[in-house]
Design a protein around this nucleic acid. Sequence first.
DNA 1: AATGAATGAGTTTTCATTCAT
DNA 2: GATGAATGAAAACTCATTCAT
Lengths: 194, 194, 194, 194
Amino acid sequence: MSKIADKRAAILSAALDIFAENGFHGSPTSLISEKAGVGTGTIYRYFQSKDDLIRELHLELDGKLQAAIFADYREEVPLRQRFDNLYENLLRYFIDNPRECRFLEQFYNSPYGIAKRRARKENPGEKEACFARLFDEARQRQAFKDLPEEMLVSLSIGPMLYAVRDHLAGLVAIEDRMVPLIVEACWDAVARRD
Amino acid sequence: MSKIADKRAAILSAALDIFAENGFHGSPTSLISEKAGVGTGTIYRYFQSKDDLIRELHLELDGKLQAAIFADYREEVPLRQRFDNLYENLLRYFIDNPRECRFLEQFYNSPYGIAKRRARKENPGEKEACFARLFDEARQRQAFKDLPEEMLVSLSIGPMLYAVRDHLAGLVAIEDRMVPLIVEACWDAVARRD
Amino acid sequence: MSKIADKRAAILSAALDIFAENGFHGSPTSLISEKAGVGTGTIYRYFQSKDDLIRELHLELDGKLQAAIFADYREEVPLRQRFDNLYENLLRYFIDNPRECRFLEQFYNSPYGIAKRRARKENPGEKEACFARLFDEARQRQAFKDLPEEMLVSLSIGPMLYAVRDHLAGLVAIEDRMVPLIVEACWDAVARRD
Amino acid sequence: MSKIADKRAAILSAALDIFAENGFHGSPTSLISEKAGVGTGTIYRYFQSKDDLIRELHLELDGKLQAAIFADYREEVPLRQRFDNLYENLLRYFIDNPRECRFLEQFYNSPYGIAKRRARKENPGEKEACFARLFDEARQRQAFKDLPEEMLVSLSIGPMLYAVRDHLAGLVAIEDRMVPLIVEACWDAVARRD
DNA sequence: AATGAATGAGTTTTCATTCAT
DNA sequence: GATGAATGAAAACTCATTCAT
């Protein structure tokens, strides 16, 4: 790891801490540079602006998140098993990485994130495609409710993300035994009842 | 409607517009007063500070939201009917009032809102109690999954709020025919499968 | 006393209280009108501006002060007796009227007061003339130090005003037995030593 | 002198000028920064707030003042000589440094200064102790009037400070030959008459 | 390349004054 | 005459960004 990468990484890590704690607007760049152990000007050698730093941080975290979710993904296993695998990975990643979760939550609720998601919808990546295939297959098998694919994604991910949000806010406690039940809730939300 | 209520209402409405659009921090009070058609100082005749304005706006909207949800609520109808009634009202309110939805989403994700929700958990109001009774009854009848009440609330409300969030972001379109299906998704997320 | 005089007097009294407590700049006119029990606009029916209110209040208090000092003044008694009489009256007035003292102290240290005193020097009133005669007589009799009259006034009044200032600030306590000693200090400051 | 000291000193000097002229409340920070030739934000790099700037400026000036007063002080010379030395130094310092005098006058009449003086009374520094010893010694020798030490300080300093105040206001002119007479007035104010 | 002092536009808030009622 | 709601200019202070070193 080069010196350059070190500084960049230090800035991103400090930014993550502080954004997760105080939000984008409650986080002066001076605080970030201080926590990162670099000069205030140094941020601007690695990032064009604070906004750019936020977007780059998102890219970084989004990559890690996808890697975590798809770490042990296998297309060939049965549908339900694939679903459970993805959602459990997602849930565990957020529980284990609260800073990342808070940042991403914030990001996707901000103008930055809304634009990003719109762009991604137009131009989906490999992982999104994988997700889409899963939901498409389920729909074709009549396993899911008769709703558009994007709606099914929202509905199935909602239970988990709300549970995590309240867990991180200290309003509920997700214990280990609850993990499968939460994943089940995600499936049940979109599964067709017989 | 008196003159006094007019100004206050104009400020609250302008603030709602602008907060929903730009977030709390992206909304200078000068923009709010301009949009409300009042002087910059006038905001401070009705609200002690910008923070106070945010909190008062929340109170206002929270009251309206609760009124909308419980508009036609009847304790005596069957459990599932009560559930469907509440969740459909909630969904329709947010679809019909996107500014309110965005504001509340933001509020409950901010330090203000997290504190508020903690306080409410300690000291629940009448409506919360009503909600709690519903979930308690369902659990006693073994209708819901074996999870703490708060977790069930998070899980059941998540599908809808995520669907609405994406709808308001323009990523999916909630059509009228989907409303019962979304409500069903909320129920299914927490219902016990036989 | 007419209604009109009542309101005016109420405003002046409230202003005195608040100026003495908080200083000119720490005293919003709204606070003054509230304490006076009148509308915020009413002040501007009796006074052209806040500055004007301050100047008028000064005039009022200055009149009262002079009346108090000269209440029992008699030109025909011996010099020293006249001096003691004036200075004791002054000291007692300030001890008994701390608000007035604080206001006047402030006033004479402000741009308003400095201009006022310059004007008065150019164009002395009856009481100033009386004072001047006293000091003039003393100098002619070689009773006072060889200094200009105004300087003698400053030197002789300084001990008392500093003692009162510190008394009102709570740093020293002027007890009754000290009054003659303080007056004596004023005399001694300017008296020629033999 | 480093660059950093330059800016700080420029701000303090500009602030002194403007405070002395217009008072604390009549001196916007924007005026200070403009006069100092720095940006508006720069003040806040060196001082936490305007209040802090005022307090720091006081500390600076108070230090200089004490240094000037005690520049050639010697404990071993006779009492009267020590007194004359201190008071003449004080007088000359104020005549030579009118801005400093006006600032300090204002400061000690403001809430800042009153608190400061109370604190100093509780917890006197080295110079105050020196002053106290002088007055104590004088009282034990029956040289001074039978009054508490603090009162003697007020009475003895009053003549000079009033004379200086009126001198700086342009109402009297202190000429060089008057200096010993003014110092004598200070002594006479508190000295016991035989 | 890295720094961090300096900047000034932009933000919240106050308050003397006005004017419609 | 009296009111007090409304005003907006002006104040203190913040912080993303620049640039000389």
